[in-house]
């Protein structure tokens, strides 16, 4: 973490604002439940006891978009569901990130037809893609950790210009 000094034993640490903000964002990022299909089962099992995601701060999976920062799109998105997905994404407050979990959300997967959206990045902007059909819980956790590394590298001046 940036510029950091511990002043004696007074329990004071100095650091940069950027690192403090990014640390706070990664330590308690709440995902929004968006399990659509089979990948949702793997997301549930990643949340459950053996591959715990609560140790990464994702204790609560909120179904409400207003209270979450991360949207894990798990499963295939049909053309009928795409406007709903976009509306829920728009209702999430800034800052927000999207993980596209599984092959169907990343590129349409095995379903190359008229009914499935070929990759959820046609609907929402995606930060991390997790491959697999379905990805193992460890793969999803690797995706989450990659997202955390991306968040830790974010700069405040990029947000100011956005």
């Amino acid at each position: 973490m940036g510029v950091e000094q511990k002043l004696g034993n007074m329990g004071v640490v100095t650091t940069t604002l950027e690192s403090a903000v990014n640390w706070a964002r990664t330590n308690a990022m709440w995902p929004m439940l968006f399990g659509l299909a089979c990948c949702a089962i793997e997301m549930m099992s990643a949340q459950a006891s053996d591959y715990d995601m609560s140790r990464f701060g994702m204790e609560l999976m909120r179904p409400s978009p207003r209270q979450s920062d991360l949207m894990i799109v798990a499963g295939r998105v049909t053309r009928k569901m795409a406007p709903v997905l976009r509306r829920l994404y728009d209702q999430m407050p800034e800052p927000k990130w999207v993980i596209s979990m599984g092959d169907c959300a990343s590129c349409g997967g095995v379903f190359n037809n008229y009914a499935v959206v070929q990759g959820v990045d046609e609907v929402v902007p995606v930060d991390v893609y997790v491959a697999g059909c379905p990805p193992r819980p460890e793969a999803l956790i690797h995706g989450v950790v990659t997202l955390f590394e991306k968040v830790k590298a974010e700069k405040i001046k990029d947000e100011a210009n956005a």
Binding site: R79, K80, N112, N113, Y114, A115
Partner: peptide
């Protein structure tokens, strides 16, 4: 019931294109 309400066409007919990319 299965397709969006403003969809054109009837997908399970044999002359409907597969729609792949």
């Amino acid at each position: 019931i299965l397709m969006p309400d403003d969809w054109d066409g009837h997908p399970l007919r044999r002359d409907y294109p597969l729609g792949y990319e």
